[in-house]
Amino acid sequence: MLIHADFSQRALVTPDQHEWTPSPMAGVERVMLDRVGEEKARATSLVRYAPDSHFARHLHPGGEEILVLSGVFSDEHGHYPAGWYLRNPPGSAHQPFSVEGTTIFVKLWQMQPSDSHTVRIDTNDAAAWQRQNGREVCPLFSSETEQVCLQRLAPGQTVVAASANGAELLVLDGSVAMAGQPCAPGSWLRLPEGDAPSITASAQGATVYLKTGHLSRTALTTSSALKA
């Protein structure tokens, strides 16, 4: 299965384009934002758990990154309400579930083989935020190949995505505009190497998830080799 699989091209999925499809587990649906592969895939998705639904215990050979968007996401390691950021490194395993229901943003098979970091950050904690370049930033992860953060933007502020190696953005609150294209909450954008359009917060401001540096040819080749 190939969905937005040409990483040399810009990709944009707005909420009106979300197509929820069943997963192999009852009560769990997903919107596939990009995907290379079938069930074992390099994938970026929105995943929705109905109340009292679960996924079978499984391995993450290529790692897993999660941002909880609503409800409470759980596994045998803990319970994570909306706003929690999780990283499960390559080789980790868990059995996720949700009692009340949840929607999460998930990235699979996109970590480097050397990434051994387990990360748990509550982005609702004011102490997790700092002031950078005139805006509030919540750093989530940083390595030689990727930088991940949340940014809170005042009206008219631009997203700081200073990377020649591609960027990816999910609008969490408020809205932004990219080259005149409005992007409401739930909009997902992926920018290839060298593509740096102006992305500006609307009149109500915006909060966005931002990942940069991970779409270089070297990083993509390495994560593909891990999956092989």
Rank of each mutant, 00 (worst) to 15 (best):
S187K: 03
P185S: 00
A184S: 10
G174M: 07
L172E: 01
P197H: 06
T200P: 05
P182L: 03
A184E: 02
A201M: 09
Q181W: 12
L189F: 05
E193A: 14
D173S: 13
L191H: 08
L172W: 02
G166Y: 14
D173K: 15
A184I: 02
V176T: 05
G166E: 11
S175E: 13
S198D: 15
D195F: 14
A196F: 03
A201E: 09
A184W: 02
W188Q: 01
P192A: 10
D195Y: 15
P185V: 00
E193F: 07
G186C: 09
A167I: 12
S175R: 11
I199F: 08
N165C: 13
L169A: 06
C183R: 03
A201G: 09
A201Q: 06
G180F: 01
A184P: 01
S175M: 10
C183G: 08
P182C: 04
E193M: 14
L189C: 04
S187I: 01
G166V: 14
A177H: 15
D173M: 10
Q181A: 15
P192G: 10
P192Y: 11
R190L: 10
L191A: 06
L191V: 09
S175G: 12
M178Y: 00
N165R: 14
T200V: 14
A164I: 13
N165V: 09
